[in-house]
Amino acid sequence: METLIVQPKNKKQLLAVEAVLQALNVTFKKEKGYSPEFINEIAKGEEDVKNGRLTRVKDVQNIWKSIL
């Protein structure tokens, strides 16, 4: 079958969707999204790259020699 991705906007909608699925005997699983802290870290990293705050590796073949 197909997979549906449902994105309720609040707890009330979530409970209603779960109730309907249970009433129809549809199996489902809950998955939590990423934490706000993680999302902020990713956004910060993307901003760093955009502003040139990064380290470029020129010699990928010998990368381990440069850190040892």
Rank of each mutant, 00 (worst) to 15 (best):
F28D: 07
K30G: 01
K29P: 00
E2R: 14
G33I: 02
E18K: 12
E41N: 15
V49Y: 14
R53A: 05
L24T: 07
K44M: 09
R56M: 06
S66M: 15
F28H: 10
P8I: 02
E47N: 15
K11Q: 10
T27N: 14
K11I: 13
D48N: 14
E41D: 11
P8G: 08
F38S: 11
K29V: 09
L24P: 04
Q22C: 02
E47Y: 05
F38T: 13
G45D: 08
L4D: 06
A43L: 14
E2C: 02
G33N: 08
E46M: 01
F28Q: 00
L14I: 04
E37Q: 11
A23C: 06
K30E: 00
E31I: 13
Q61T: 05
Q22V: 06
P36W: 01
L68R: 09
V60M: 13
K32F: 12
E46N: 07
E18I: 06
A23L: 09
T55Y: 06
V57P: 05
L68P: 05
A19E: 14
L68V: 11
E47C: 03
N40G: 07
V26E: 14
V26A: 04
E2Q: 13
G52A: 07
D59M: 03
K29R: 10
T27S: 12
Q13D: 12
T3V: 08
T55C: 00
Q22G: 01
P36D: 14
G45L: 03
A16W: 07
G52H: 01
K11V: 11
V6N: 02
I42F: 08
E46K: 13
G45K: 00
E2S: 06
A16D: 09
E41S: 11
I42T: 11
Y34K: 13
I5S: 09
K32W: 10
E18V: 04
V57K: 05
E46I: 11
V26N: 09
S35K: 09
G52P: 02
R53H: 15
K44W: 02
E41H: 09
I42S: 07
Q22L: 09
K29M: 06
N40A: 15
K65D: 12
V60G: 00
W64T: 13
V6D: 04
A23T: 15
K50W: 00
T55V: 15
R56L: 07
G52M: 00
M1I: 11
V57I: 15
K11N: 10
L4P: 03
E18G: 01
N62F: 07
K58T: 12
F38D: 00
K44V: 05
D48I: 02
T55W: 05
L15S: 12
G45I: 11
N51K: 12
I67C: 00
I5Y: 13
L15M: 12
K30T: 06
F28T: 10
L14F: 12
N40F: 01
A19Q: 15
F38I: 11
M1V: 08
K30H: 06
T3A: 01
E47I: 08
I42K: 06
L14N: 03
A23M: 05
K50D: 12
L4V: 04
L4N: 06
E47F: 08
K65Y: 03
N51A: 05
Y34F: 15
P36T: 10
A43Q: 12
V57Q: 04
R53Q: 10
